[in-house]
Nucleic acid binder design. Structure first.
Lengths: 137, 137
DNA sequence: CCTTGAACCTCTAGTCACTAGAGGAATTAG
DNA sequence: CTAATTCCTCTAGTGACTAGAGGTTCAAGG
């Protein structure tokens, strides 16, 4: 049996966030002591770790919830889990490539101000200037 | 003179978002017609375009505001602009590398479910299993 | 047994950057 | 002049928390 603070330390999820997950129905309401404090068991720890990990991967809570509801599922239902993973992967790849385009542009902008500080800084112009961008966005 | 709708079409910023920027003080309150409708001029268009572009680059509005306040600045003040650009670049590079680590992990997870649908799907296990991750997060 | 301090409780409100919708007024094209 | 479109303000909702107020419970030391 763990207190909420112990659960927090073991998973790296902050205490208010754990209560927030309970509110949202992602974590079942745990047992309480006579004094109304939460006491968690091992399955709760596992479930929270699952949530933490999937959140770190960038999945929205709605998807985490969908995956959690598939626990113990089999056959066709499992296609849903696979589908979520695939969709997230595609989404992630898209985000990476967009960020990479922005990286090269930002590098250009940061470089624009080096050296000549006399007149109006080129950074300000470069931020506003879409035409000199490499990619489109 | 443009209506808010025209400004929206020209910049790609949605109408409610333009009003939101005005509320936040990022865009100065424009002139109004006798019937209380907003009419914008070219400088407003330029300013909104600057905001749009910097937002697309992922800068938070607080930074956009800081950059806007540097308009017409010179000398030491311009170091602030340069500093913001550099900080954003560092931040962006960090985000990209973290996402790339997650990409390889998600690819592993998506692959885990292919083929064997008999028992509990490996995707669900893989999502919860931190030990098999390549990197740390 | 009693005290002290840390950790716990609930609840409200704030964050960021919008987005949606209600209910109504102004503008513009035919 | 009418009808369609666009505009106005205002409130509330989104996602995923985070912060703070004000109060209670627990565990350890004396």
């Amino acid at each position: 049996m763990f207190t909420i603070g112990e659960l927090s330390r073991r998973t790296g999820v902050k205490v208010p966030t754990i209560r927030f997950y309970e509110d949202k129905g992602l974590l079942p309401s745990p047992e309480r002591t006579a004094g109304n404090q939460r006491r968690y068991d091992k399955p709760s720890l596992d479930r929270l770790q699952f949530i933490k990990h999937t959140r770190d991967l960038g999945l929205p809570l709605a998807d985490v919830e969908a995956l959690l509801s598939l626990e113990g599922a089999r056959g066709d239902e499992l296609d849903r889990a696979h589908e979520i993973a695939e969709r997230q992967l595609a989404d992630l790849r898209d985000r990476i490539s967009r960020l990479q385009r922005l990286e090269s542009e930002l590098a250009r902008i940061a470089a624009a101000c080096d050296g000549q500080h006399d007149h109006v800084c080129a950074v300000l112009h470069a931020f506003g200037d879409h035409d000199t961008c490499s990619g489109s966005h």
